[in-house]
Computed example of a mutant assay.
Amino acid sequence: MTWPATERYFPTAVPGGLGLVQDILNTAPSGGAPDADLLGDVATAQGWISAALPTWAERTGRAAVRLTLTEEDLPKLRQLREQLRRALHSRCGSTGGDSDGGDGRDNDTARFTSCALQVSLHGDAALTTEPEGEGWRWLTSAVLCEALLAQTTGEWRRLKICRNERCATAFYDRSRNNSGVWHSTRDCGNAANLRASRQRRRAGAEAEPTPGGQA
Rank of each mutant, 00 (worst) to 15 (best):
D106L: 15
L18F: 05
V14N: 01
R200I: 00
N177V: 13
A150R: 04
G135M: 09
T169W: 06
I24P: 00
T169V: 15
Q118K: 12
F171G: 05
S99V: 11
V181M: 09
A5G: 03
G189Y: 04
L144M: 11
T6A: 02
L38C: 01
A33F: 07
F10W: 05
L159S: 04
D41N: 14
T95Q: 12
R166K: 14
G212Q: 05
T113L: 15
Y9G: 00
L67N: 01
D23V: 07
S179Y: 12
T152Y: 08
T129W: 06
Q83T: 04
R81L: 02
G19S: 07
P75C: 06
L159E: 09
S197A: 15
G17I: 08
D41H: 06
R66Y: 09
T70L: 08
L88K: 15
R158I: 09
R157I: 10
G93Q: 00
E72L: 09
V65T: 14
Q79M: 13
N193I: 02
A192I: 04
G102D: 03
P11E: 06
T70F: 04
T169M: 05
G31I: 03
S197I: 05
S114N: 10
W136T: 06
Q151S: 11
E208G: 01
R91D: 13
Q46E: 13
L20I: 12
S120E: 13
L25M: 06
R86M: 12
H122K: 01
P75F: 06
C115Q: 11
E132H: 05
L80E: 05
A52G: 03
F10D: 15
L84I: 15
T140P: 11
M1P: 04
T68S: 12
T12Y: 04
L149T: 08
V21H: 04
E71A: 15
L139A: 03
W182H: 07
Q118M: 10
E206I: 03
L53S: 03
T27Y: 03
L139E: 14
L127V: 14
A13K: 00
T70Y: 09
Q118H: 08
F112H: 13
A207N: 10
G31H: 00
D98E: 15
A52M: 06
